[in-house]
């Protein structure tokens, strides 16, 4: 109980510290402060979409899936291509985007199932081989995307469904894209949905039990390998979904996989390996930290590298204070 209270105090202190730092360095410009805060939430939502799958997969299967960023990329490329494909231009624009997101998510999920069933399953007894394999698969996916779409990145060039991509709203005199708020809302909805899945359904109970002791779950009559496949597929599909809904804002490019994978790994570790709560909280903490540092570094230091290394700096800080992460088990 005391540890939990300490964890919440630490989260509150770090978050408050970031907000105060952001407010002070904004020199009282509420518009700048507000947009930084919203940018943090936007990044946090996207980090969550990559990190949630990573966390559940690691918790249940002890696999750190280095290909998770590649699935994010696949979701973005598939959605971008379908939305901009000439042959599909006849489809109503309000329908074309959701269809693109659905297709990107399904393709990501299917590729996840293929990776788990075809390549990872024979290597369950060899965790190091699995690690290297997912790393290799990430490279293969990257090269495949390069072969199909080339090395040039794509920016979203046309209207999205319901005009949400183009609309702006004002916060303390500054304009902020409604689409980013939409992504935050989707991220929060996913947090709730996955949380409900884990807490309220039988498969959720099985997954949480499997995170504790998958051998015992199998000995109770549950086909754990089938659960592994389902969870891996779901984790990859959620990452691809993240890429798909990020595409109207970020476009599709070969750097976006790693750009989101590394912060997501930091999120999973600092949140506590295998802890869903830790992943959700950690995502928004990292998102906020990156947004605050990015604004400060671009305004005062003229060096954007600080934003890129912020997730790792926050990770180091939290591990120094909580060696097993915010919500991690002491024994892990």
């Amino acid at each position: 109980m005391q540890r939990t209270r300490g964890t919440y105090m630490l989260i509150l202190t770090l978050t408050a510290g970031l907000l105060v730092f952001s407010f002070v360095t904004s020199a009282g410009d509420l518009g700048s402060f507000g947009t930084t805060l919203l940018s943090g939430l936007f990044l946090g939502a996207l980090y969550f979409l990559v990190a949630s799958g990573l966390s559940i997969i690691f918790g249940l299967m002890d696999i750190l899936n280095f290909a998770q960023g590649a699935y994010f990329m696949i979701g973005a490329y598939v959605t971008y291509s379908l939305f901009h494909m000439d042959a599909l231009k006849g489809i109503d624009v309000n329908l074309r985007f959701p269809l693109g997101v659905l297709a990107g998510t399904i393709i990501g999920g299917l590729l996840g199932a293929v990776l788990e069933r075809g390549l990872l399953r024979p290597l369950y007894a060899r965790p190091i081989f699995q690690l290297v394999l997912t790393f290799g698969v990430a490279i293969v996916f990257g090269e495949a995307l390069k072969a199909i779409w080339g090395t040039e990145g794509y920016g979203w060039s046309t209207v999205t469904s319901f005009g949400i991509h183009q609309s702006q709203f004002e916060i303390f005199g500054r304009q902020f894209g409604s689409y980013r708020l939409f992504v935050v809302a989707v991220g929060v909805a996913l947090i709730v949905l996955i949380g409900l899945l884990l807490q309220r359904t039988r498969i959720g109970i099985i997954i949480r039990a499997g995170v504790e002791d998958s051998e015992m779950v199998e000995a109770l009559g549950i086909n754990v390998r089938a659960v592994f496949t389902m969870v891996f597929t779901l984790g990859c599909a959620v990452a691809a979904f993240g890429g798909a809904i990020a595409a109207p804002f970020l476009g599709a490019n070969l750097g976006m996989g790693n750009a989101f994978l590394l912060p997501a790994i930091a999120v999973v570790v600092l949140g506590g390996l295998g802890s869903y709560m830790g992943t959700a909280v950690g995502s928004f903490m990292v998102g906020l930290a990156v947004a605050v540092v990015a604004r400060f570094a671009s305004e005062f230091l003229n060096q954007t590298v600080w934003a890129s290394i912020t997730p790792m700096l926050l990770l180091i800080l939290i591990l120094l204070l909580r060696p097993s992460g915010l919500f991690g088990k002491e024994s892990r």
Binding site: R208, A209, E212, I222
Partner: peptide, 15 residues
């Protein structure tokens, strides 16, 4: 080998 994070009900329901 009970599941420590699961409630008593969930420990029983899983089977």
């Amino acid at each position: 080998a009970i599941f420590r994070d699961l409630t008593v009900r969930e420990n029983l329901a899983i089977v």
